[in-house]
Design a protein around this nucleic acid. Sequence first.
DNA 1: TGTACATCAGTGAACGCGCGTTCACTGATGTAC
DNA 2: TGTACATCAGTGAACGCGCGTTCACTGATGTAC
Lengths: 185, 185
Amino acid sequence: MRYSQDHKAQTHQRIIKEAAARFRRDGIGATGLQPLMKALGLTHGGFYSHFSSKDELVEKALQAAGEELDAHCAMLFAEERPLDAFIDSYLSEWHQTSPHQGCPLPTMSSELGLRGQPSPTTDAVLNARLEQVQGTLEGEHADDRSIVIMSTLVGALLLSRSVESPGLAQRILDVTREHLKQSRD
Amino acid sequence: MRYSQDHKAQTHQRIIKEAAARFRRDGIGATGLQPLMKALGLTHGGFYSHFSSKDELVEKALQAAGEELDAHCAMLFAEERPLDAFIDSYLSEWHQTSPHQGCPLPTMSSELGLRGQPSPTTDAVLNARLEQVQGTLEGEHADDRSIVIMSTLVGALLLSRSVESPGLAQRILDVTREHLKQSRD
DNA sequence: TGTACATCAGTGAACGCGCGTTCACTGATGTAC
DNA sequence: TGTACATCAGTGAACGCGCGTTCACTGATGTAC
């Protein structure tokens, strides 16, 4: 049946949003299109009215996750101590336990890199963050230091999500957060 | 056919070694048991003479990768400047392009963490590295600082492998390596 | 020592399953007259 | 304005494929007598 004018655009965005969440939470390879469409109350056959392949959806979902992150960071970097706010948010318990709503770098991008199909969108997501962090840094080599900060944030979040011991997971977040905030200036 | 006495033990180890390489290079989910056994000149049916399930192999392969890393690090930490040697090795071009022979933390462990089935072996691999790094550090809070160093190493390697631009990938390694070596003392 | 038998690592076909993708079809809506 | 037609988002069965796993079988070796 033909739906009202902007119905398709809405469905299109719903698919992308649900995919962006599942890809980050479960992994790209482990996310099936059939369960994804079913969760939206649709049948899987209709998927190809919106995307030419799963790969195209992966790319769109990574972009969408990047835009979510941009929006979230726009708020953080408007605060008084923008870098501290960003660090606190990145290494928060909420971010640790909510990969489906968080930064796509430790989840989607690392899986794409692993599979040998890195996307330019990964570079865009990372570069956006590097520039924002760099803007808050005083002194020399702000661009270099922003790279170290992002590496440390991504690594700490990834390790925290990977270890089995809840105590160690929390400790990684706490220690890294304090270190990054102290060595800020 | 029945094979000579230690034949089975040898095959067992060959399967683990090949799996440890493939799991790190291609990912656990993307590695099939059928191609794995075929690469060793065996048929897939025989797999279950050695392991009760793929999950058991995953655990054994993660352990084996940890032991490989232990052996490699034992040499590095016997050098004159052990921490520098470890940092240089971890952020080397060789490690960047050889995930199948490298640290399992940014590859296998992160995938296991993603799938919500973290293994105690991940904690063992990380703790072994934390203790070695900690042993080289002077001053206060050596244990905390070792956590930050490991987070930074893992994050930098992961990002370097994830981005599309070779220039950015190299820069992440270079900048992080210099930062960690300078802030050593 | 020589022979008969038991073992069991490895074989290869088959199992059900979910995957990404294709395709003929439906039917409410937008458009043309 | 009212009617006939074209559109096309979504349906649901089917495709081939590779997955992890099972299973009856093979046959060279180790063991028992």
